[in-house]
C-alpha cells in the first residue's frame, strides 16, 4: 500500500529535544562485562568513586555512597581503581552471561 506522506508523524521543530537529561532512560548497563560490587563495611564515603564515575552511576545520597546505578554503569572499573588504597571497598566481578 502506498504510504501517504502528508500523514507522516509529527517531529519537533528543528530537531530539538525537549526532555532534558532523558538519556537517563537509555540503558547502557548491557555494555558491562565487569560489575562493581561495594563492601559497605569498608566504604568510608569519601565519594572519590562518585566524582570519577564517567556514567553518573555511583549513587550518592546525603553525602554517602549508597550503591551503583547498574542501568548505566558500563563496568569501566574506575571506581574500584580509584577507591583509596587503604579502603578498597569496591571489587569488579564477572557479569554472569
Amino acid at each position: 500500500m502506498k504510504k501517504d506522506c502528508e500523514e507522516k508523524k509529527e517531529v519537533p521543530l528543528g530537531g530539538v529535544i525537549h526532555k532534558a537529561g532523558n538519556a537517563h532512560d537509555y540503558v547502557t548497563g548491557g555494555w558491562r562485562k565487569l560489575r562493581p560490587v561495594l563492601d559497605k563495611d569498608k566504604c568510608t564515603n569519601c565519594l572519590i568513586c562518585w566524582v570519577m564515575c564517567p556514567d553518573s552511576a555511583v549513587i550518592a545520597e546525603d553525602g554517602k555512597m549508597v550503591g551503583f546505578d547498574l542501568e548505566h554503569c558500563k563496568g569501566c572499573g574506575i571506581c574500584a581503581m580509584e577507591c583509596p588504597d587503604k579502603v578498597k571497598a569496591i571489587t569488579m566481578e564477572e557479569e554472569e552471561a
Partner: peptide, 30 residues
C-alpha cells in the same frame, strides 16, 4: 567538598554513549 558537590543537581545524565572509562564525563559533571 565532595559531599557538598554531590548534593548539587546532576546536570549530565548517565545513559550517554561515550566509551567505558572515557575521561570526558567526569570533567563535564564537575
Amino acid at each position: 567538598t565532595l559531599k557538598e558537590l554531590s548534593a548539587r543537581e546532576e546536570l549530565f545524565s548517565g545513559g550517554h554513549r561515550l566509551c567505558a572509562g572515557c575521561g570526558i564525563p567526569p570533567i563535564m559533571r564537575l
